[in-house]
C-alpha cells in the first residue's frame, strides 16, 4: 500500500485538502454563532467604509461582540497592508 501511495506521487489527497479547508470555514462560522443578526451587515458596511480609504482584503476584517454581565464590547480588528515590503522582515 505504502509503495503504491508513493508511486502515485506526492500529491496531497483531495480529502485531506477538504478537511483543512473545512476546519478553517467551520472555525470562522462558529466565531459568528449566537451573535445578533445585524452583525454580518455591520461587518460588510464597516469593511466598505474602510476600503474607501485603505486597500484591504475581504477577510482582513474581524469583528466580534463580547458580552459581560453589564457591558458589551464591540471589537474590530483590521489587518492593514504593510507600507512597502521593508516593514515585513
Amino acid at each position: 500500500m505504502r509503495l503504491l501511495d508513493f508511486l502515485k506521487g506526492e500529491r496531497k489527497k483531495s480529502a485531506s485538502v477538504a478537511k483543512e479547508r473545512l476546519q478553517i470555514i467551520v472555525a470562522h462560522q462558529r466565531g459568528h454563532r449566537g451573535q445578533p443578526d445585524y452583525m454580518p451587515m455591520l461587518e460588510q458596511e464597516l469593511l466598505a467604509v474602510i476600503r474607501r480609504y485603505v486597500k484591504v482584503d475581504q477577510d482582513a476584517i474581524n469583528i466580534s461582540l463580547d458580552s459581560d454581565n453589564d457591558c458589551s464590547v464591540l471589537e474590530l480588528n483590521v489587518t492593514l497592508p504593510n507600507e512597502g515590503e521593508a516593514a515585513k522582515s
Binding site: A18, R21, L22, I25, V26, Q29, R30, H32, R33, G34
Partner: peptide
C-alpha cells in the same frame, strides 16, 4: 462526505442552538 454539505450542516447546527 463533501465540503459544501459539511459546511451547511455546521450552519444548521448554529440555527439549532440559537
Amino acid at each position: 462526505p463533501e465540503v459544501s454539505s459539511v459546511r451547511d450542516s455546521d450552519r444548521i447546527l448554529g440555527l439549532l442552538s440559537s
